[in-house]
Design a protein around this nucleic acid. Structure first.
Lengths: 364, 364
DNA sequence: CTGTTAGCGCTTTCAG
DNA sequence: CTGAAAGCGCTAACAG
């Protein structure tokens, strides 16, 4: 029943077309026709071959098939930067997954994650799944480095892809994101209007494109107001609670700094508050804060004077729909979804939930 | 620079070993040696070839490689039943994913989901990812059907796999789960001790193995007490809120039924409560309820007289660790993790959170 | 309607 | 140290 298994090749297929063909007394090509529902096989032969396939649980070897360059059925998700720099919120991830299932999974396509393409020996390449012939399309999560060349290679390959972010050097990049520069401009402009001149900034994604966009927005806002940008008021931060509160402390210990933009992207109110406390400052009283949020109507920090909503999720899910249409040939690539940020004042007080990071949970 | 691209094969590799070999003026085998870090190449040749590989962004084609039966690096997760029958809670899924990342992803392995292997034409097979040569190991989520033969094929293939559940007809099955039969026995026994004789049951997973285990546990408990099992007191339910409350209503409208075991697996307190209300009954007063939970110390239904904790998550994550060891050859398969359920009384009152299902979120 | 042949990109085996 | 040749399982192209 079970054909010969070669101990030297533990992962070799249990059944091949050739074995099925022999069992059915037909040629390999006939089996191929049955498997691929091609015409040119009599009903009798077809059902006989189909029954054997069903019986033994034969499946065609996708490696061999893909070697012929046929269409794949695997959607890849990859991470463009080391995990600690990618603040995957649980909520976002769950929604991403749910949408991927609805758009691709329901038709039987595989959804494949390449979470850590960075080999210790430095041979990492976040697009490897695409170039290894595994992914038919690719979704890039996380910030791009300004000097990134990988996404250009992806672009040139012609395969459908989508980046949740942009790249200055590559306006043609297939992307779905929010205008971060504008978010910073309206944040700073709002504080300028309220009379502040020395405005501290918590700037996330240093060394990556979204960090650049934050910097440009800050400069533009001050230039527009005729003020010389003071870049010592910019603190580069990560998503680490210690780093965040230390940065807030460093900025606010200087009492001439009367306002703060939380553009960390961390949505971590507790750490901001802790930094204020250490500096002896009280949000809403002796320091005004504009904080950024990814959820409309949700205020990570209740005492902020305004919130800037970055609809990154909405952009991402719209982008996925377009990516699917590109994949299906219903439109051409690249995808270009860009949402404006929205400044909101007077949000209702809310419970300040701590951020829940996907990869902080391991072992629980 | 870019080699010839055949328009008839849009997914063909952009670079092959042959192209790299030609560019470097060496043979294919030498390139292969460099790619696979095999000895037998001079340092000069190696670095020259490596530089070209780096430059053009060459990656070996995994289809071609797997054709030779080499080890794969892709861990598959598949669903053993149609999605509506698999009550994937968001929390569970997030933890599953996080653990998969920690165990497999951090070493650079791919994690690939086959969420909907059920083709409309009936050719579905939840193990396809394994037999197509995509997965090196496979994790099976969801209940198995008593007549399942697919898992036997997986078992015979010798590849590492893990089922979050068991199969009566296959005690050797690699599994990590909780003793559901025992959960039902202690649930019913507890209510018998409290003087109830007509005990209603909400039984989930009808037609699947965990449904069978529930039934057996119910029969055993009554037999042990010398009571004739009355199977008309068993209501088969799904995870649908309407179905749940209707079943509760149907059971409790008969006032001779004084107790209820919520073995739906839905953790949906609101629907149970709604069913009681419709039947004019008050939990804790004129009906005693034992409800099942997947989280220790969390009481889905506050007015229950007892809770049975099924540590399915803990079993699952322990099982994953063992699966990884099997995968690495540090132990032999199959994995056998079986946790006992625990009956808890007097849990503190908690906020009754509604269940959040992973695939109920699509589009948001 | 059915079968034969060549070759996809890679690794294994064997020769230099 | 390096390379040539065979063949993995499948599909495209071409014969019967």
């Amino acid at each position: 029943m079970t054909p010969h298994v070669n101990p030297k090749r533990p992962n070799s297929p249990l059944w091949t077309m050739e074995a099925i063909a022999r069992k059915a007394g037909v040629s390999i090509k006939t089996v191929s026709r049955v498997v691929n529902r091609e015409p040119g096989v009599s009903e009798g032969t077809r059902s006989r071959v189909a029954r054997i396939i069903e019986e033994v649980g034969y499946h065609p070897h996708m490696g061999a098939r893909s070697l012929r360059g046929a269409a794949h059925d695997c959607i890849g998700v990859t991470i463009t930067a080391p995990i600690p720099l990618v603040p995957l919120q649980e909520d976002f991830f769950v929604r991403l997954f749910s949408n991927l299932y609805r758009i691709f999974g329901e038709r039987g396509q595989y959804i494949c994650f390449d979470l850590n393409p960075y080999h210790p020996d430095g041979t990492g390449d976040y697009a490897r799944g695409l170039f290894e012939g595994r992914f038919a399309a690719c979704i890039l999560c996380g910030p791009l480095s300004p000097g990134d060349t990988t996404v250009k290679r992806i672009h040139r390959s012609g395969r459908p892809y989508l980046v949740f972010g942009r790249l200055d050097s590559m306006p043609e990049c297939s992307s779905a994101t929010v205008d971060v520069e504008s978010a910073m401009r309206i944040s700073v402009a709002h504080l300028l209007e309220r009379g502040h001149t020395r405005i501290g900034v918590l700037r996330g994604f240093h060394g990556y494109q979204p960090g650049e966009e934050r910097l440009r927005g800050y400069r533009r806002a001050l230039e527009d107001a005729g003020i010389e940008p003071k870049e010592n008021l910019i603190q580069n931060v990560t998503f680490d609670a210690q780093v965040l509160s230390a940065a807030v402390h460093r900025l606010l210990i200087n009492r001439s700094v009367t306002a703060l933009v939380d553009a960390s992207g961390a949505e971590d109110a507790a750490s901001i508050r802790e930094g204020c406390r250490r500096a002896g400052r009280i949000p809403g009283q002796d320091v005004e804060i504009v904080d950024w949020t990814y959820t409309d109507g949700a205020a990570p920090l209740n005492d902020a004077c305004a919130h800037v909503w970055l609809p990154v999720w909405q952009a991402a899910f719209d982008g996925l729909e377009e990516l699917a249409r590109w994949f299906d040939g219903e439109r051409e690539g690249p995808v270009q979804v860009l949402y404006p940020p929205v400044l909101r004042q007077n949000l209702p007080q809310a419970t300040e939930a701590p951020p829940r990071r996907l990869f902080g949970l391991a072992g629980t």
